[in-house]
Amino acid sequence: MEPLLEVKNLKVRFSTDEGPIEAVRDVSFEIKRGETVAIVGESGCGKSVMARAILRIVPAPGNIVEGQINYYRDGRAIELTALEAKGAEIRAIRGADIAMIFQEPMATFSPVHTIGNQINEAIILHQSIDHAGATAQTLDILNRVGMPRPSRIIHRYPHQLSGGMLQRAMIAMALSCRPQLLIADEPTTALDVTTQAQILRLLYDLQREFNMAILFITHDLSVVSQFADRVEVMYLGEVVESTDVIRLFEDPKHPYTRALLNSIPQTGAGRGQRLQSIAGSIPNPLHRPSGCLFHPRCDSFQPGVCDLVSPKEIDIDKDHRARCILYDEQYSDRVSSAAFGQ
């Protein structure tokens, strides 16, 4: 299948008073049409910055300093990184081709306009359509996202809706122009589990219906396992492992992925076995560790290698890459077999 979006060696840097922070460094991946790619990682791993870089809405003082993002429309590549960040071209793509939904729906909607007006406006902005037509479309899309009684909801203000309903309204607004790619930045993190289940199901059904690709950003591996086709695991701005969802959960290669999977409590496991925790905490991005970024917390740490060498992304298998020297033939003689663990 042809790619829809392609990210190549992207680097985003924030220049702060304390020094430069590379929120995203050397990240490459692609999204095919209709596919769901999950970017999973903990706080500070750069997953949200990554998503914003695609729409060219990286907040100041952040800048894309290297790399390329290509969006394919009708077989033609548009280099998003070459567009003017505030220009007309990228604005035409935002919303119409690539839409985004956020963790906090409250922050996306303006509190002083009704839900209906805000969705109408998004539709009118991207289509040549009159107000009545836009309203008809708004009602239709609200219906499709399972909003109860849309004809009444369009006259409501954001604060009058519950978290789950607002999330539905935001999804409706994002889908109003039938985007090819939906970027969902932690769309269910602020929701309760039962509401989360509703929203995940909704996104899944809408994706089939609209045949769109989803870039799903989350910290929650269990959501990833239920939702994604491919997974990019990020740690401190780098993709450490990248593969399809089955292999990620059944045969994780990078020590970070393995440790993360072992540290999640699961229902039904009970109090019997002890969770394996990852030592230490996520380093301050201003003081990145030398060598492999994960080495101070890694249980496969190889002294003299991991703390000195920045690992390259290694192709372990077809469509399975990991950024770890354990899989780098160059260092195979210096790695003890015990390091492979589990």
Binding site: A259, I264, S277, S281, I282, R297
Partner: peptide, 8 residues
């Protein structure tokens, strides 16, 4: 907390 420290 972050997933990796929850277990700790």
């Amino acid at each position: 907390l972050d997933v990796s420290v929850q277990a700790q």
